[in-house]
Simulated assay, not measured.
Amino acid sequence: MASSVAFPHDFAFDPAYGYDAPEALLGIPAPPAPDGFDAFWQDRCARARAVDTRPVLGPVEEERDGVRIHGVTYTSVGGVRLGGWLALPEGPVRYGFVVGHGYGGRQEPGRDLPAPLPGAAVILPCVRGMGERGRVDGIPDLAAEHVLQGIGSRDTYVIGDCAADLWCAASALTALVPELAEAGLPGGPRLGYLGESFGGGLGALALPWDDRFGAAQLTVPTFGNHPLRLTLPCAGSGEAVRAHHREHPEVTDVLGYFDAATAATRLTLPTLVAAALFDPSVPPPGQFAVHNAVAGERELQVLTAGHFAYRGMVAEAAELDANRTRFFGERLRAV
């Protein structure tokens, strides 16, 4: 593994956080689960899976990379109506994917297409509050405000509802694509999940409880090891949480239920984690904590940097794309 690279930067802190090699990062643990952690998430997942998502497929908005891209809307928990995109292959559907987005939302399908595998149907949801198609009254769309929405209680924290939006997106996908309706049943196909940054952290929180998924890729995942994150300055949403914690230290009790590394200790499906050595927005120690905690089969690709432009990033992205295709091809069951 490569050593950390000290990039010239204007941040008032070290985006490598003093870790000069992956070996040190590989020793960062997950915090212990708070009381009732499993029951809390199992109940949330069961309630989300019971939602009648009533998906509506819109007209084709774009055709490229061998897929037809439609607008899509569906219902999530609390009766919230959300939007996004559904990409359908020109030929038969053989795989299904749910793709989470980063903080700030998704304004278009963008570089998350094409899918890792040919013949994949891909839903790209906008979780509540994020992006034009995820707008919900009363939920701010700025990351620094969104990450604090309802943070006073584990039952009202928006991050839990965002995880539910992913479960409901999976339900919408399987409702719209009958070939995938057996996902999660013995012998049936399993869905793949892709998530980067915010979407990576949400994936770690959501996936342990949903048997419809068979493999996942989490890239520079956030929300890992909150007790450690609270000590690390950053340029991302974590800084808003740190500021809030200074005024409301009791929030640590709530954050314990939304720790991606803690959740990863329950994550048994094969997981590819891409974690960065240098990242001003999502501190690398938290990213590696998620990888280190994965309970099942795991693979690691070390990135030189995340949320930061650097020489060589195009080549590293291409390498990650190739690894992703191999990884899902070896582990997902085709229809």
Rank of each mutant, 00 (worst) to 15 (best):
R242S: 06
P189W: 01
Y95K: 10
A309H: 08
A260M: 02
A261M: 13
T265G: 08
D112T: 05
D279W: 00
N292S: 04
F308P: 12
E330W: 02
R135T: 13
D112W: 12
M1R: 02
V302Y: 00
G58F: 13
G152P: 00
D210P: 01
A170G: 14
L57M: 04
A260Y: 00
A305I: 04
R106G: 01
A2F: 07
L57Y: 02
A39Q: 15
P114Y: 11
T174G: 02
P55T: 04
L320P: 11
G312S: 11
V335C: 15
E108C: 02
G286S: 09
G200T: 03
R94D: 03
G79H: 02
G236M: 02
Y257E: 04
T53W: 00
A206Q: 13
G150Q: 09
L303M: 14
G71W: 01
A143W: 10
R333L: 06
E182L: 15
E330K: 13
V335Q: 08
G66M: 08
G238P: 11
L228S: 08
T252M: 15
S237Y: 07
T262P: 01
A295M: 10
V158H: 02
N225T: 01
A2H: 01
R49T: 07
D52A: 14
A39H: 14
V72Q: 03
H244Q: 03
G71R: 05
F13C: 03
L194M: 12
G104V: 11
G102N: 09
L207P: 11
R190E: 11
L185V: 11
A120M: 05
P178R: 13
C126R: 05
V77I: 12
T174Q: 01
V294Y: 07
F40R: 13
T75Q: 12
L218R: 10
L230T: 03
L303T: 05
A318E: 14
G119E: 02
E250Q: 14
L176W: 06
A12S: 13
A315R: 12
H248S: 11
A263P: 01
F213T: 07
A264H: 07
G100A: 15
P59W: 00
A206G: 07
G224C: 10
D35L: 13
L166V: 05
G129K: 01
W41L: 07
Q149E: 15
A243S: 10
T174K: 03
D52K: 11
S171V: 07
A2R: 11
A295Q: 08
A334S: 15
G134K: 03
T265I: 13
G66W: 11
G256C: 01
A215I: 06
M313R: 12
G66Y: 09
A215G: 02
F13P: 09
V220K: 09
L300G: 09
L88I: 05
N323I: 08
N225P: 12
A216G: 12
L88V: 09
Y17T: 06
G66C: 07
L207K: 09
G58V: 14
A33F: 12
